[in-house]
């Protein structure tokens, strides 16, 4: 049975991102009372895009051509270290959450370069916004993971997340703060509603969508896929905070998938119930993750190490 888990995880990495997007869209349509697209629509779109040819502007340098592939591949490699079903990551080593963060950073760096490379003012604006929010998210991610590492005494992704649920004394507190911080990260990195509106058609207010305006065909397919994969990975962290390691692999895999669907539903509900923030108010929302992280870190230090 144990051998099935890595296989399940690989399948999860391959198929789940597009399903995740489909679930969010379906959910939003259902809440609005529309029939909406089929849950498999992202798959159809993906295949359709792959069959098309790519149009590349003559004004761009080779970076524009290779950037989507790099972004896609870095996300795939990053997916290897994130613990998925049964808190099991495909590879794991001490300090791999740093590896994860910088792989994500590398992919983002190239997509930013590509956006700037087109010379379009809209894409440059989108890139500048994306990097502004990332500067708040990245340190916050490290703080949150570092506090989890302090709490559990482990530095490998999968061990941190398998132990955090069992940590004594301050379980409720750490679960609460950790998941809240990661949810803010999910909304920011995934460019979902309070930060960005994925449905908008106005380039002036876009963040992620505007960066990929010039990509087409397979390039666009890869970028979209990488984007959803990123959301799935962050959701996987949130789910794993609440998941202990179980002996029954099948049950654990099912629970994990259900958890991922639940986070997708949570994202959809947030999108439906919250209005998009004004661009000048977004940094304070993103900074919330830092605040939560600091409070988590210092409460853990205070509670766990003050001996009281």
């Amino acid at each position: 049975m144990k051998i099935l888990i890595p296989v399940f995880n690989i399948l999860l990495i391959i198929f789940f991102p597009l399903l995740y997007a489909g679930v969010i869209n379906c959910e939003k349509a259902w809440w609005c009372g529309r029939r909406g697209p089929s849950i498999w629509q992202p798959f159809y779109d993906f295949v359709r895009l792959l069959r098309k040819g790519a149009v590349i502007s003559t004004a761009t340098s080779p970076i524009f051509a290779i950037a989507p592939s790099i972004t896609f591949s870095t996300m795939l490699i990053a997916a290897l270290v994130v613990p998925l079903a049964n808190n099991n990551s495909l590879i794991g080593f001490p300090g791999d959450f740093i590896f994860f963060a910088y792989l994500m950073g590398l992919g983002k760096f190239f997509s930013l370069l590509a956006a700037m490379d087109t010379g379009s003012s809209f894409e440059g604006m989108g890139a500048s916004r994306e990097i502004t929010f990332s500067t708040f998210v990245e340190p916050a991610f490290f703080i949150v993971l570092a506090s989890c590492a302090i709490l559990t005494g482990q530095t490998a992704f999968n061990q941190v997340f398998s132990l955090i649920f069992l940590s004594p004394g301050i379980k409720v507190l750490s679960l609460l703060l950790c998941s809240a911080a990661l949810f803010v990260m999910l909304l920011t990195e995934g460019c979902r509603t309070p930060v960005d509106d994925p449905n908008t058609h106005l380039e002036l207010t876009m963040i992620h969508e505007v960066m990929v305006l010039d990509n087409s065909g397979p390039d666009l397919a890869l970028l979209t896929y990488a984007h959803y994969l990123k959301m799935v990975l962050i959701s996987a962290m949130i789910v794993n905070i609440f998941m202990p390691v179980l002996d029954n692999s099948l049950l654990s895999a099912c629970l994990f998938s259900a958890g991922l669907i639940l986070t997708a539903l949570a994202v959809a509900v947030t999108e439906l119930s919250v209005a998009r923030l004004r661009m000048s108010h977004v940094p304070q929302f993103v900074y919330f993750m830092n605040s939560l992280g600091y409070i988590l870190l210092f409460s853990i230090i205070l509670i766990a190490f003050s001996g009281r």
């Binding site: 409070i295 210092f298 509670i303 003050s306």
Partner: peptide, 30 residues
């Protein structure tokens, strides 16, 4: 934004004070 940053700083500062106060006798729960 600065309001949130300041608030966070105040939290950090207060937690440091609480952390520091553990070396004193009779401190309340940190």
């Amino acid at each position: 934004f600065y309001s949130v940053v300041l608030t966070t700083m105040i939290f950090i500062f207060s937690f440091f004070v609480a952390w520091w106060s553990t070396r004193l006798p009779d401190t309340p729960e940190t």
